[in-house]
């Protein structure tokens, strides 16, 4: 399958890179002529996925998080991947308000935010191998073309 555009970003799993990651993806998405709301949705979803990788995937250890973005027509695909510990029960992790770290005052809304703000969210995870979150969103502003 041929994509109109592609980018790959790799960075340390440090929390200060959360803002960096969402701004980079938003800048890449700019070519799709998104609305302010669409950009805000993308930034929030990326922030959730990257935060999950840092807190849950790597338990705050310094490793690498990878983001791949593909643009195909008016659809943006975002893949956020870590090589961390993996999610034991994906179904449970996706439940609203569920958190494996309640002591950190986490809201347990990460996946709910991703699901609400993106069109599709797919989670693949293997214990000890890592987690890959693939999300897509169609941008309306180019639909009329």
């Amino acid at each position: 399958m041929e994509y109109k555009n592609y980018m790959k970003l790799e960075f340390h799993s440090k929390s200060q890179n959360e803002a960096f990651a969402r701004v980079v993806v938003a800048a890449f998405a700019a070519q799709l002529d998104p609305t302010i709301e669409e950009i805000s949705d993308i930034k929030t979803a990326v922030s959730e996925a990257v935060t999950n990788a840092i807190i849950h995937g790597y338990d705050d250890k310094n490793e690498l998080v990878t983001i791949i973005c593909r643009i195909n027509d008016n659809e943006l695909e975002i893949i956020v991947e870590d090589k961390g510990k993996g999610i034991e029960d994906i179904g449970k992790a996706r439940e609203p308000l569920y958190t494996s770290k309640p002591e950190l005052e986490r809201s347990g809304m990460g996946f709910t935010v991703m699901e609400t703000f993106m069109d599709t969210v797919e989670v693949n995870s293997e214990m000890g191998k890592g987690t890959k979150i693939s999300m897509t969103k169609k941008f309306k502003s180019l639909d009329e073309d």
Binding site: R22, T44, E48, T51, E105, R106, S107
Partner: peptide
Amino acid sequence: NFMDSSGIGVIIG
């Protein structure tokens, strides 16, 4: 200018 679910945790706390 920006808030994600970590912010929700802060507000609820």
